[in-house]
């Protein structure tokens, strides 16, 4: 089980001014599995993702992807590693002067040599999958928050990535839509076998999708467990988290 960690964070520390956000994060992301990172708002979940993406350099500690330490390798090598990534940012980060269609088509146009008809087919397929077809000609500013998220997801998945990073993919979506998105995730993951890292506040629903759940609390990852182990964990912090998010019904000892 130890040999197929595709991403490894070792003792990552990061401060902004006097605020120490990450105080020694250790995390292993297993190949082909879904790891969900949960934790309170402002704890540094998005920051962890940015470390793995190589957008932020840690103050100390090492971030390894495919066994390569991100801040030690050349620009070229980093770019090669990133060809495997599909990323949804928390704010979607759509290109706001391009239409929805061009946004989703961009990775295909810049990274592959396929024809425009083929591009069109793939883009429409992905937009349909995310249930935002018919918005092709709109600009991101003309979309609702939830639609932006789904366009961002379509863009992240358009090149069939090997690792996907979704920062709060269903925040701002209604229950039916987020269920639909989760179905799409498990379907595409089965088909493509990608590794996924998901940041989410949607507990307990997200547990159905997760192979591992990691709780970030006070700058460290308390533990990375399977959803079942997580819900039954003895760790007081995890227990507390499970109780506040899922209610006491879920933890057996709390039953009166």
């Amino acid at each position: 089980m130890n040999d197929n960690a595709i991403v490894e964070l070792i003792d990552i520390k990061k401060s902004f001014g006097s605020q120490q956000v990450l105080r020694g994060v250790n995390l292993r992301i297993m190949e082909g599995k879904t790891t969900v990172i949960v934790g309170g708002s402002g704890q540094g979940k998005s920051l962890i993702i940015k470390h793995i993406l190589g957008l932020v350099t840690p103050d100390s500690g090492r971030a390894l992807v495919y066994g390569k330490e991100l801040n030690k390798i050349s620009k070229k090598e980093l770019k090669d590693i990133r060809t495997n990534f599909g990323v949804l940012f928390q704010n979607s980060a759509l290109f706001d002067s391009m239409t929805v269609y061009d946004n989703v088509a961009l990775p295909l146009r810049e990274r592959t040599r396929i024809t425009e008809e083929e591009t069109e087919r793939i883009v429409n397929e992905k937009l349909k999958m995310m249930d935002v077809e018919g918005t092709n000609k709109k600009y991101p500013a003309q979309l609702s928050g939830g639609m932006k998220k789904r366009v961002g997801l379509a863009r992240a998945l358009v090149l069939d990535p090997k690792i996907v990073f979704f920062d709060e993919p269903t925040t701002g979506l209604d229950a039916a839509k987020s269920n639909e998105i989760y179905r799409v995730f498990s379907r595409t993951q089965k088909k493509l076998g990608y590794t996924s890292v998901i940041v989410s506040h949607d507990v307990p629903k997200i547990f159905k999708l997760a192979d591992y759940v990691a709780l970030l609390h006070n700058g460290i990852v308390r533990d990375c467990l399977t959803p079942d182990e997580f819900q039954l964990s003895d760790d007081p912090v995890i227990k507390d988290y499970v109780e506040t998010t899922m209610g006491p019904v879920y933890s057996s000892e709390m039953e009166v």
Binding site: L55, R82, V87, A93
Partner: peptide, 18 residues
């Protein structure tokens, strides 16, 4: 500048587009 602050530059980098 706007592309930078709205993370569009980061998004490009993560798509392996220089």
């Amino acid at each position: 500048g706007i592309m930078r602050i709205s993370e569009q530059v980061d998004a490009l980098e993560c798509m392996a587009i220089d």
